[in-house]
Computed example of a mutant assay.
Amino acid sequence: MISISVNMYNDMQAAKTYKVIIPYSESANPRKKFKIEYTVAAVDRESALRKAEREFESYADYNSASWVRSIEREGIRIWKLLPDKPQTPECIDELARKLASPDEDIVYNSLKALGEIEDSAASSQIISVFRHSNPELVALAIETLGRIGDPSNLGAIRSLYKTDANPRVKACVVSAMGRLALPDDDIVSFLTRALQDEDARVRANAIESIEKLDLPDVTRLLLPMLNDEDNRVRANVIKALWNKEDHSQLLEALKVMAIDDNPWMKASAVFVLDKVDIPGRLELLADMAGDPHPKIRQNAREALFRQHGLECIPWWLETLDNDEEFALIAGKVARMGERALSTVLAFHGQSEKSRRYSSMLLDLLEQQVLKASGWISWLKTKQKRLFKAP
């Protein structure tokens, strides 16, 4: 077996490392089979295969022999390289065979590992778990196939969606469909049916799948569900429709969720504010950061501190409660550099604590100016601080 390492792209922060084995034959000796192995950095299996195929074709073009190399696609294997996980086809196959174990813990751990590795060669063994008596293992098997991302498993997964099926199994089926369906798959009627399911998890997952697949007529399908009794369903509707529908109705629904007595409804409002660029979201998150419910308060604070931009600085400073949070924000402000200086200088805190943290940020920015631009620039910065408007 030939081993070739494809150039890694260091700037792809989301990239993972995959191993790709491509079997091929040569016209000069069609009965003899060959394999070539690539290690590639890619965001997913599909991208890894495309990179490996390009490398394969470029090598064939460079070689310019009189015979032709042909890929035998049925034998292609792709898996993610992870520490402490199987890294060869033989070890992955051994892991897949453990799915036949009568020990449910072994089956569970094997499914989790196979989902992380993403090798579709184990699909048939994973599908065999669909017959297991434990619905939790069936659900995990569906999730595993969804993570692997091979569309050829779509039919087997879809067949599990029945009216009387376990709700968690149905929810996992709907989620996996959103991951695996291709543009020409007839899936609209299936997801429309799932939107009417009595289980809230199924409805919420159906909305996520509709958003992910960018299906047509999404507003007609989802807008009526803005009044659903379930918090996650409502949140997913707002998130899915934000770039497709008039904002006023969605924003009003979100504000109602944010002041609801039900803490789960508030938690879902925080989720939307964290994920969607909604006007006034910094103010809403800052308000919810003072919620009496500890979990809502913590979620809102974390969401607020995850935001980016100069406009966040005043809200961060008024919300900071301890030095650990300050260290997180200080790192963000430091990366903004001198651009943040005028924003911090213009800040007039409403509390002694916020003013103290503002002063600490100015100390940090002054040191950055000194290090980057020298003492004259530092002196000018110090003067701005000393003579800023009260």
Rank of each mutant, 00 (worst) to 15 (best):
M1I: 04
M8W: 09
M8Y: 08
N10Y: 13
N10A: 13
M12I: 11
A14H: 10
A15H: 08
K16E: 14
T17S: 10
P23N: 04
I36L: 02
I36T: 13
E37Q: 09
E37A: 00
E37F: 04
Y38M: 08
V40N: 06
V43R: 06
S47E: 09
S47A: 14
A48V: 13
R54D: 11
R54I: 11
D61Q: 14
Y62E: 09
S64P: 09
R73L: 07
G75V: 07
I76N: 04
R77L: 13
P83S: 08
K85A: 11
E90F: 01
C91K: 09
L95H: 01
L95P: 10
L95C: 01
A100R: 15
A100S: 14
S101T: 06
P102L: 09
D103L: 09
D105F: 08
I106T: 14
V107N: 03
G115C: 05
I117M: 07
E118T: 05
S124H: 09
S124R: 12
Q125R: 10
S133N: 05
L137K: 01
L137V: 10
A139L: 12
A141W: 06
A141F: 04
I142G: 10
G146D: 08
I148N: 00
G149R: 05
G149M: 08
D150A: 13
I157P: 09
R158D: 12
L160G: 06
D164V: 15
D164R: 09
A171L: 15
S175I: 00
L182C: 03
L182H: 03
D184Q: 14
D184R: 11
S189C: 07
F190G: 03
D199Y: 14
D199I: 06
V202M: 08
N205Y: 01
A206C: 02
A206W: 04
K212W: 10
V218D: 02
R220E: 14
L223F: 15
P224W: 14
D228S: 11
N231L: 11
R232C: 12
R234S: 00
K239G: 02
L241I: 12
A253G: 10
A253F: 00
K255W: 01
I259L: 04
D260K: 00
P263I: 03
V270F: 02
V272G: 01
P279S: 01
E283A: 15
M288P: 03
G290C: 11
P294H: 12
K295T: 15
Q298H: 15
E302I: 10
A303Q: 07
L304A: 00
L304K: 04
Q307S: 06
G309L: 05
W315H: 13
N322E: 02
E325L: 05
A330T: 03
A330Y: 01
G331F: 04
R339F: 13
A340G: 13
L341M: 09
S342A: 07
F347I: 03
G349N: 02
S351A: 11
S351E: 12
E352G: 15
K353G: 07
S354I: 02
R355V: 06
R355Y: 06
R356W: 10
Y357E: 00
Y357K: 00
M360S: 02
L370F: 05
K371D: 08
A372S: 08
W375D: 15
L379F: 03
L379N: 03
K380Y: 00
Q383R: 08
K384G: 00
A389P: 10
